[in-house]
Design a protein around this nucleic acid. Structure first.
Lengths: 226, 226
DNA sequence: CGGGGGCGTCAAGATCCCGTAAAGCGGCCC
DNA sequence: GGGCCGCTTTACGGGATCTTGACGCCCCCG
């Protein structure tokens, strides 16, 4: 669910955008003044921002500058002004796109999608890798390394490890694990857990008999610790 | 010095852009056909691409798709068409901006700066040519070489190889592969994978029976390793 | 002190998955 | 119309993986 922050002071535009975006599965927050916009952006961390330049309390360019101080979320500027000077000013102040009113909803939505797509690609450079002192888990590549050798895991082993690592630090109940990895029908086959946990420890822990990262909490479940 | 690739078939526009961009310190490469454009993009690694949709040899959208296969450089589309449908199509095909002709040079340059700025945040690490010790894959030219001889691949073989190489190092699930290459309806025909993987290995691996680059992870999927 | 529940370990059989070869089939080009 | 090419389908041996049962340990509790 993509979070969008819409900043505009005209109620009818706000309403039209809110409806159109909500229908398409966006999570919409709105603000009708510059100050409220900056507060909302700080609170909600929207993935994309739609900014109307004609605000009552402050210049749109100032809002943009305020956002760019700490956020790199893509900003699409809306404006009634078609002056090329205005466009240049907004784009150079950090806007990612500039749409003049009145605008077609189809085109606007396409530009929004483009902005979101690009925004999503940017901070993606770092793989979600989890490191411990005895092994490394790459959740995106589904790869596990110990020392510098790659460790081969079976689908079930990986399923358990993934579930535990995604909830690192937290306790994962036995039933949740079984439901996630084997399916709802196996919620009582706690024996499987013991077999596969042992297997994972043998493959990953330095000393499998005294596990330091794949911890069992007797009677409750298991926990992954970095 | 920012590298820009300008793709257009109208000499006067090409000339105008070349002059304007050069004066402002950009390093300009030009191409006047889709094929030349893809080659130039693969060679020069431009940081931003300006693409006119009206090309003589292929549809602009196809050029865009060809670029997006391996490059994440921002693309600004130029077009004489103002139809919202055209804009939507281009933006959804991976364009970052859409400027209709005739356009103001100031605005265009501002949009270019915005695109470059954003592109700089997401460094383009993707190399269209992937090399292993037994074969070479050129994602831009859709060509595979082994030793110094070109290897002929069927469309299906190429589809699989491309998908795997694009996700190099990562594990690609069987369903994802089938969906991408054969379509959503074939998500369970896992047998195809075995047949075609064997074929690819026979054509590419030095010792097809002990593959070193096209690895299978039993029960999960396949992985390409350099 | 004895019993029981929960846990870890091991190993063997059943099951599923993979690699390989080869044949059938349809489309395309000459 | 014939031949070639690529896609689909079948069959089967071998290997990887999952399941299952047996056993011993530890800790808590009666």
């Amino acid at each position: 669910m993509t979070r969008v922050l819409v900043i505009d002071d005209e109620p009818q535009i706000l309403r039209a955008l809110r409806i159109n975006l909500s229908v398409r599965g966006y999570e919409v927050t709105t603000a009708s003044s510059g100050g409220a916009a900056l507060r909302a952006a700080a609170e909600r961390h929207p993935e994309v921002i739609v900014l109307d330049l004609g605000l009552p309390d402050m210049d749109g360019i100032e809002v943009l500058a305020g956002l760019r101080g700490w956020s790199s979320a893509p900003v699409i500027v809306l404006s009634a002004r078609t002056d090329s000077a205005d466009k240049v000013a907004a784009l150079d102040a950090g806007a990612d796109d500039y749409v003049t009113k009145p605008f077609g909803m189809d085109e606007f939505l396409a530009r929004l999608r483009a902005a979101v797509r690009r925004g999503a690609a940017a901070p993606d450079t770092a793989d979600p890798v989890v490191v411990t002192d005895s092994f490394t888990v790459d959740l995106a590549a589904k790869k596990v390394t110990k020392g510098d050798a790659e460790v081969h895991l079976t689908p079930t082993e990986w399923g358990m490890l993934e579930m535990l690592v995604r909830n690192k630090g937290k306790l994962v109940g036995q039933k949740e694990l079984l439901r996630e990895v084997w399916g709802p029908a196996y919620a009582t086959e706690t024996h499987y857990l013991r077999v596969y946990l042992a297997q994972l420890r043998r493959k990953l822990e330095d000393d499998p008999s005294t596990p330091r990262h794949l911890i069992t909490e007797a009677g409750m479940g298991y926990r992954f610790q970095e």
